[in-house]
Design a binder for these strands. Structure first.
Length: 288
DNA sequence: CACAAGACCTGGCAGC
DNA sequence: TGCTGCCAGGTCTTGT
């Protein structure tokens, strides 16, 4: 599943093949994505040079001579480079053919992804204008989280998954970061101490960084098949581990619905009475 | 304004 | 074996 680390890994993987390349042709086999691929997109891409690529939240941005291409992988999307555009599979919706002969191909079974030309400056685009800070940036720290959580009553898990507050933290990493910082996912955001938010900020960075490092696995995958589950699963402490023993205290992991999403937690390590110092003993990634 | 729930879509899987 | 129904994921939209 494309979470931030996978998007970052994808970016690093495709950037060398795309940077500086001129787009020869855009082939749209199925325009029905989260937003239909616009006529503008089809008209404006061919002939333009890709100046550079970067990531914002889970969006990939290809900066062109005029405007940019905004790509999102949704829940099931993947990008890969292919030398042959005639050999395509089901759900290979888009091919962006480059002058090198390689093609950037979007594969997305559930079609929640996005592939759209947008004008510059991209930061004023509605989809990008209201995004919170990057979790790996200095702007994301305990003081910031504590500040935005003041007087908020929603579950802390929902707070850190709100893209206006913080981008890139999906369900898996929200669960993991809350475990590492000893916070119950349903606890009201405004009731959590500043010290605990310091731990949470560190845990978010830690879990995302670790996953990006393991992205090497994904990197190899996305050039061939779409790299599916399992690649980071070995490192997960709570996600998808209902009834299995907590890596820290052996208590069975519990599951709860918060904001329509499965939330996994250890009832002992993640309770309001868990002292701030207890999970601190964790080295981060105790081996399963 | 804050928050919750719904919608979108398909593949995979459990249960019959 | 095939059918039904549920679930997963991210984020925008709608409802309370």
């Amino acid at each position: 599943m494309p979470e931030l680390p996978e998007v970052e890994t994808t970016l690093r993987g495709i950037a060398p093949a795309l940077t500086g390349q001129r787009i020869q042709r855009l082939l749209v086999r199925d325009r029905r994505l989260r937003q239909p691929v616009s006529n503008e997109t089809e008209a404006l891409l061919p002939g333009q040079r890709i100046l550079h690529l970067h990531r914002r939240a889970k969006y990939l941005l290809l900066t062109l001579e005029e405007g940019a291409v905004l790509i999102h992988l949704g829940m099931s999307g993947s990008l890969r480079l292919t030398p042959v555009i005639t050999d395509y599979r089901k759900h290979d919706h888009i091919d962006l053919l480059l002058e090198s002969g390689l093609s950037l191909r979007l594969h997305d079974p559930r079609r929640f992804g996005l592939f759209q030309w947008i004008p510059t400056p991209v930061t004023s685009h509605p989809l990008l204008a209201n995004l919170g800070p990057e979790p790996l940036s200095e702007a994301c720290d305990g003081d910031y989280l504590y500040r935005v959580a003041r007087k908020r009553h929603l579950a802390v898990k929902n707070l850190i998954m709100d893209s206006r507050v913080l981008v890139g933290v999906g369900n898996i990493y929200a669960n993991e970061a809350l475990f590492l910082s000893g916070i119950h996912p349903a606890q009201a955001a405004g009731s959590i101490s500043q010290a605990r938010y310091q731990r949470l900020a560190i845990a978010i960075k830690q879990v995302l960084s670790a996953a990006i490092e393991q992205g090497g696995t994904t990197l190899r995958d996305f050039l061939r098949e779409d790299g599916h589950p399992g690649y980071f699963a070995q490192s997960l402490h709570v996600y998808n581990r209902a009834d299995k023993p907590c890596h820290q205290c052996a208590t069975p992991i519990e599951v709860l619905r918060i904001g329509q999403r499965s939330s996994f937690y250890c009832p002992v390590c993640q309770s309001e009475t868990t002292p701030d110092c207890l999970p601190g003993a964790r080295t981060g990634m105790s081996e399963p």
